[in-house]
Design a protein around this nucleic acid. Structure first.
Length: 516
RNA sequence: GCGGGAGUAGCUCAGUGGUAGAGCAUCAGCUUCCCAAGCUGAGGGUCGCGGGUCCGACUCCCGUCUCCCGCUCCA
């Protein structure tokens, strides 16, 4: 089966079995926004619990917070998002290629530099040791001509950027006769500004309102609370702050189902360390995080690290953990060494001292930060992708058959067990209800009496229920039931009184933590 | 945002200028009983939405929304 087909089936399966629906579907939907259904929300909550517990419960030096989505607008200036999240884009009408207008102009500046360096290089070769480079640069006609053009372009470019003058940016591209590298033409569209941050207004009256942004990442909520948590929690470096929350990005192109959404959820942990120890903590967290992923048992060969060669403005090291999705290896989690960039920026913009007094060193410093950042929705998609399988079965009498089963790790499964009477009579339904009454406070249970028992098993397979408990006539005599396992389809007969223990052992998060 | 393709029942799809179909799924009843597809019956669609042409539009035209593929972007 082709991989795209697998992906299509996944999307269909997610809808058909109540995992993921398109947002506002009865109104034709809303682009790149999705809702989680009755089973999806359970799986999602379990993923968050797996992460949260592995961070906050398992590490005594990691604590959690829940910061607001709205934050002071200056935070986004300090973080660099106001500048970096808004790109002026221009399309070439012939090649249909899109470029960042500022990048095109920067490349043009580089071309002037190349021309100048070429002249200088030629002269150096010609004159050898006696070459006076400074004088050459100041006097050579060709160098001066290019330098003048370059400076003029530079000034014009900076002014246009500062004024956010998009027409001027376009005119600059036209005047410089910049061509599309693909089509070679100068048939450009207008320059348009894409702001990747959503904004709204706070304050009821129009004149008193201030522009606020929906956070494009949860990290800043942690940084601006660094002092609060460190002081009130009496935290000693190294320590971490974890947070799970929604973030919003107005993506130009948001596609591939829930892989890239405009409203998404992040699970982030910022780990504050002594400057200079950041490389070793970076190594440690990258391994810890990989272990967390692989503990789910989907096969280590399906994961890999992807080292960044191009680093974001705040980072001195960055690596992604990628999973082999049906559409290729894609990022699920990022581990970034963010240096002291964020805390220093907030120190600068807020005017508050954000430092840690290290008693061992007897000095104060701005801590360095190692960030682990994972998308809940991507993790959800990763698990569904990994868990989805179509199996060919051959029954005892040789009949061929297929089943669709979600092999979700039991601790993450939306429904832990289904209890069903073998037949809808003779008191079996009542007995089944009785069992559910006893277990429903411990596990998410489902009752089903409709259709044949085999069909009911398949329905549970399709949503990844790890255990099916069946009540038959023997149950009424000796208080035992059969428990059928999703992955093997095998059954055991066990006393009803032991059900709780058996299932609890299998669905506990401890089962996963044991592998960390 | 550009180019290409698509949108008919919960799902997969058929249909075609003349009152909307199938299979599966759902629900009710019966039957069998430990691995889907037994019998009987029922519900469910203003054919993505809006406009136009026409006596008449699911079908033709225009617009729009959404999805898929490619480009582009990705902290």
């Amino acid at each position: 089966m082709a991989q795209e087909d697998v992906f299509k089936k996944l999307v269909a399966h997610c809808k058909e079995y109540g995992f993921v629906f398109q947002s506002s579907e009865i109104y034709d939907g809303l682009g790149a926004v999705y809702d989680y259904g009755q089973n999806g929300v359970e799986l999602k909550n379990n993923i968050k619990k797996y992460w949260w517990d592995s961070m906050v419960l398992l590490n005594e030096n990691v604590v959690g917070i829940d910061s607001a989505i709205f934050m002071h607008p200056t935070i986004w200036k300090a973080s660099g998002h106001v500048d970096a999240f808004s790109d002026p884009l221009i399309d070439n009408k012939d090649s249909k290629k899109r470029y960042r207008a500022d990048v095109l102009i920067e490349e043009q500046l580089a071309k002037y530099d190349d021309k100048i360096e070429k002249e200088v290089g030629k002269a150096r070769k010609r004159f050898g040791d006696s070459f006076d480079e400074v004088q050459f640069r100041e006097t050579n006609a060709r160098v001066l001509e290019n330098q003048t053009k370059r400076d003029a372009l530079q000034n014009r470019f900076v002014k246009a950027l500062n004024d956010s003058n998009l027409d001027e940016l376009r005119q600059t591209i036209v005047d410089e006769e910049i061509v599309c590298p693909v089509s070679g033409t100068r048939n450009w569209t207008d320059v348009r500004q894409f702001n990747l941050m959503f904004s709204t207004e706070m304050g009821a009256t129009a004149d008193g309102a201030q522009k606020v942004y929906l956070r494009p990442e949860t990290a800043q909520g942690i940084f601006v609370n660094y002092l609060n948590v460190q002081k009130t929690g009496r935290m000693k470096i190294p320590f971490g702050i974890a947070q799970i929350g929604k973030a919003f990005r107005n993506e130009i192109v948001a596609r591939q189902f829930i892989f890239r959404m405009r409203e998404f959820e992040q699970m982030e942990m910022q780990f504050f360390v002594r400057p200079g120890t950041d490389p070793e903590w970076f190594q440690q967290w990258r391994q810890t995080r990989m272990n967390w992923h692989q503990a789910l048992g989907f096969g280590s060969e399906n994961y890999r690290f992807h080292e960044h060669d191009k680093l974001a403005h705040y980072a001195n090291a960055a690596v992604d953990i990628e999973y082999r999705f049906p559409f290729g290896f894609k990022e699920v989690e990022g581990i970034h060494s963010r240096t002291d960039f964020d805390l220093s920026q907030h120190q600068k913009f807020s005017g508050k001292k954000i430092q840690y007094f290290d008693p061992e060193l007897n000095e104060s410093y701005v801590p360095y930060v190692i960030e682990t950042s994972i998308g809940v929705d991507r993790m959800f998609l990763q698990i569904i992708s990994a868990a989805y399988s179509e199996e060919e079965l051959v029954s005892e009498d040789g009949k061929k058959d297929t089943r669709v089963v979600l092999r979700i790790p039991a601790p993450l499964a939306p429904v832990k067990l289904a209890v069903m009477p073998l037949m809808k009579k003779d008191g079996l339904p009542e007995k089944a209800r009785e069992i559910i009454e006893d277990l429903k406070f411990d596990f998410n249970c489902q009752y089903d009496e409709k259709d044949s028992i085999g069909k009911r098993y398949r329905r549970q397979d399709a949503i990844g229920t790890p255990f099916c408990v069946t009540v038959d006539h023997i149950s009424l005599e000796d208080q035992t039931v059969t428990i059928r396992y999703r992955d093997t389809m095998l059954q055991d007969r066990v006393p009803i009184s032991e059900l709780k223990n058996i299932i609890a052992g299998e669905v506990s998060m401890k089962k996963l933590f044991a592998k960390l």
